Deep mutational scan, measured.
Amino acid sequence: MAMNGTITTWFKDKGFGFIKDENGDNRYFHVIKVANPDLIKKDAAVTFEPTTNNKGLSAYAVKVVPL
C-alpha cells in the first residue's frame, strides 16, 4: 500500500537518501528506485511503497510529487 513522505536527506554523489514517512519513521531509498530522479531534493514530497531490507525500513517505487 502506497505511503506519503518527505525526503529528509539526499546524498546525490552516493545515490541514496532517506524519507520520513507518514508515521514519522525514516526509510532508506536508492536513486534506481525513483521514477523521476531529476526531481529529487531535500524536503520534496514523495509517494512510495514501503518495504524492509536487511538494514531496516526502506522504500521502492518512489515518485517525487512535482510542485
Rank of each mutant, 00 (worst) to 15 (best):
M1R: 13
M1Y: 12
M1T: 15
M1H: 14
M1Q: 12
M1I: 13
A2Y: 13
A2T: 15
M3L: 12
M3K: 05
M3D: 02
M3Y: 07
M3P: 03
N4D: 05
N4R: 15
N4T: 13
N4Y: 12
N4C: 10
N4A: 11
G5L: 03
G5M: 01
G5F: 02
G5D: 01
T6A: 06
T6Q: 08
T6N: 07
I7M: 01
I7S: 01
I7G: 01
I7K: 00
I7C: 02
T8V: 11
T8G: 05
T8E: 07
T8H: 09
T8Q: 09
T9Y: 14
T9P: 01
T9R: 15
T9W: 13
W10C: 03
W10N: 00
W10V: 04
F11V: 06
F11M: 05
F11C: 08
F11P: 01
F11H: 07
F11E: 05
K12N: 08
K12F: 07
K12M: 07
K12A: 13
K12T: 07
K12Y: 08
D13W: 10
D13E: 12
D13N: 12
D13R: 10
D13F: 09
D13M: 10
K14I: 05
K14M: 09
K14F: 11
K14R: 13
K14H: 08
K14A: 09
K14V: 06
G15F: 06
G15T: 03
G15R: 07
G15S: 06
G15L: 06
F16Q: 02
F16A: 03
G17I: 02
G17V: 02
G17N: 00
G17K: 01
F18H: 04
F18T: 06
F18L: 05
F18D: 00
I19A: 00
I19Y: 01
I19P: 00
I19R: 00
I19V: 03
K20W: 07
K20P: 01
K20N: 07
K20D: 04
K20Q: 09
K20H: 10
D21C: 03
D21I: 01
D21H: 02
E22Q: 12
E22H: 06
E22W: 07
E22L: 06
E22Y: 06
E22G: 05
N23F: 11
N23D: 06
N23S: 06
N23A: 08
N23H: 11
N23E: 06
N23T: 05
G24P: 01
G24N: 07
G24K: 05
D25G: 06
D25Y: 08
D25W: 06
D25N: 09
N26K: 13
N26G: 05
N26R: 14
N26S: 14
N26W: 13
N26L: 14
N26H: 12
R27F: 07
R27Y: 11
R27T: 01
R27G: 00
R27I: 04
R27M: 02
Y28F: 14
Y28R: 03
Y28G: 02
Y28K: 03
Y28Q: 03
Y28M: 05
F29T: 01
F29K: 02
F29C: 02
H30I: 07
H30E: 13
H30S: 13
H30F: 06
H30T: 12
H30W: 06
V31A: 09
V31Q: 09
V31L: 10
V31R: 13
V31C: 08
V31I: 13
V31H: 07
V31Y: 10
I32C: 14
I32L: 15
I32M: 15
I32F: 14
I32P: 05
I32S: 15
I32D: 15
K33V: 15
K33A: 15
K33N: 15
K33L: 12
V34M: 05
V34L: 04
V34S: 05
V34C: 10
A35V: 15
A35Q: 14
A35K: 14
N36F: 06
N36Q: 06
N36G: 03
P37W: 05
P37R: 08
P37D: 03
P37Q: 06
P37G: 04
D38Y: 10
D38Q: 13
D38C: 11
D38T: 11
D38I: 08
D38H: 13
L39E: 12
L39H: 10
L39C: 12
L39T: 06
I40V: 09
I40P: 01
I40Q: 00
I40H: 02
I40C: 07
I40S: 02
K41Y: 08
K41T: 10
K42N: 06
K42G: 04
K42C: 08
K42T: 09
D43A: 09
D43I: 03
D43M: 10
D43F: 12
D43R: 09
A44W: 04
A45Y: 12
A45I: 11
A45C: 11
A45V: 12
A45E: 09
V46Y: 02
V46L: 01
V46K: 00
T47D: 03
T47K: 08
T47E: 08
F48G: 00
F48V: 01
F48Q: 01
F48P: 00
F48K: 00
E49V: 15
E49N: 14
E49S: 15
E49F: 15
P50C: 04
P50T: 05
P50H: 04
T51V: 14
T51Q: 11
T51R: 13
T51P: 03
T51K: 12
T52Q: 14
T52C: 11
T52F: 13
T52N: 10
N53R: 09
N53A: 08
N53V: 07
N53F: 09
N53Y: 09
N53T: 15
N54G: 13
N54T: 12
N54V: 11
N54F: 11
N54M: 12
K55P: 04
K55N: 10
G56L: 08
G56T: 07
G56W: 09
G56E: 05
G56N: 06
G56Q: 08
G56I: 08
L57H: 06
L57K: 09
L57S: 04
L57N: 05
S58M: 09
S58P: 02
S58C: 11
S58H: 06
A59T: 07
A59F: 02
A59I: 03
A59M: 04
Y60G: 12
Y60K: 15
Y60Q: 15
Y60A: 15
Y60T: 15
Y60I: 15
Y60C: 13
Y60R: 15
A61E: 10
A61R: 12
A61Q: 10
A61H: 13
A61I: 05
V62I: 14
V62E: 00
V62H: 02
V62S: 00
V62T: 01
V62M: 04
K63F: 11
K63G: 03
K63A: 09
K63M: 13
K63E: 10
K63Y: 11
K63L: 11
V64A: 04
V64E: 02
V64L: 05
V64Y: 03
V64Q: 02
V64K: 00
V64N: 02
V65E: 09
V65Q: 11
V65A: 08
V65K: 11
V65R: 09
P66L: 11
P66M: 10
P66W: 10
P66E: 14
P66F: 13
L67Y: 14
L67P: 14
L67D: 14
L67S: 14
